[in-house]
Amino acid sequence: MSDTTRKGNTMATEHLLEVHDLQVEFGGEDGPVPVLRGVSWHVDRGETLAILGESGSGKSMTAQVIMGILEAPPARIGGGSVRWNGRDLLGLPEAARREVRGQGIGMVFQDSLSALNPVLRVGPQIGETLRTRLGLSRGEARDRTVELMRQVRIPDAEQRYRQYPHQFSGGMRQRAVIAMALALSPDVLIADEPTTALDATVQVQILRLLQTLQGESGMGLVLITHDFGAAASIADRVAVMYAGRVVETGMVRDIFRRPAHPYTKALLDAVPRADRRAGQLAALPGQPPVLGKETSGCPFRFRCPLAETVCEEREPVLSEHAQGRWSACHLGKDVIAGVLTAHS
C-alpha cells in the first residue's frame, strides 16, 4: 500500500483493481489450511500484470475470489479486500457481484473446451450475455457478436457464428472464449493460463491477440501464467507467488534481469533456453511447499541457497529493497546485488 500513497496527496491513489492482504483457508480434517496468506497486488488501466508462480502457489485462487466463483465452503475468505474502481467487492451482495462480473471484470479460463457448451452454436453462446445483461434484441446481439468475433480475429466470423465448438480448433475456441469475456466491455480482463493448453505456434497468436486487445481498449490485463517467456513478452509488471503469497513484485525488466527474491532468480535459471544449451540446468532443490504444513519463518528457506538464521525465525514481509523493487526476502538487497551464496 505504501508504494501508492504519496506525500501531500490526501486522496489515496485508486487502482483499477486492487487485491489487498487477501486470506483464504480451506476447512481440513485437522483444522483450517491457509491457502492464500495475505496476497496483495493491483492493476491499472492500460497495464498488463503477470502473476507468475508454480502450481499450488495460489495464483488461480486469487482470480476465483475476485470473480466470486470460489466455492465457499469448503473455502473461507479469512480477510483482506478486493477493490474494483474503489468498490469493495467482497462485501457486495451476490446480485451486485454479478453486475461486476462480465461488465466490470471479464475472465478467460485455461480450458476453452469446457468453457463452451458443446451442443450450442458458438455465436449465440458468445452473444448470450448481450441479450440477458444488456437486453439487446436477437438481431442486435447477433451483429455485435459477429463484430466481437472479428475483433478477436476469428476469420469468416459470419460463418463461424453458426458453427459448433467441435468445429473450432483449440486456438479458435480460445479466441471465442476471449470474445465471450469481452462481450460486456469489461475494464479488467483476467486470463488464467490462457495459452497453456495450446500448441506453441498458437500460443504466440493468443498472447499477441491479448496484447492487441488490451492496447485497443485500454483495459487492465491480468495474465496468470507459469510461463516466463509469456510474461516477458507482454507484461508491464510482474507479481511472483510462492506458498500463497506474493514474494516479489515490480517492473518486468527489473525482475527478470535482477530479481530481488532468490525464488524468482532460481526459477529464471531453471528455464531451459532455445538459443543455447546449458550443460546442466540450475535446478532448484526440493519440492514446492505442501499446503497446510505449518512452518515457521520463510516458506522458501528450505530450498534457498541464502537461508540464514533470521529466515527460520520470522517470515519476511514484502518490502522495498531499492526504488520500486519489492520482495519478501530478508536478504533482498543482496539478491538484487547478485550475491548468491550465504553469508558466513
Partner: peptide, 16 residues
C-alpha cells in the same frame, strides 16, 4: 523457423 520464433526468451527486451 516458425516454431523457434514462437518460443519467447525470458529477457523482456529480447522477447519483445
Amino acid at each position: 523457423q516458425a516454431l523457434l520464433s514462437s518460443a519467447p526468451p525470458t529477457d523482456p527486451d529480447m522477447a519483445r
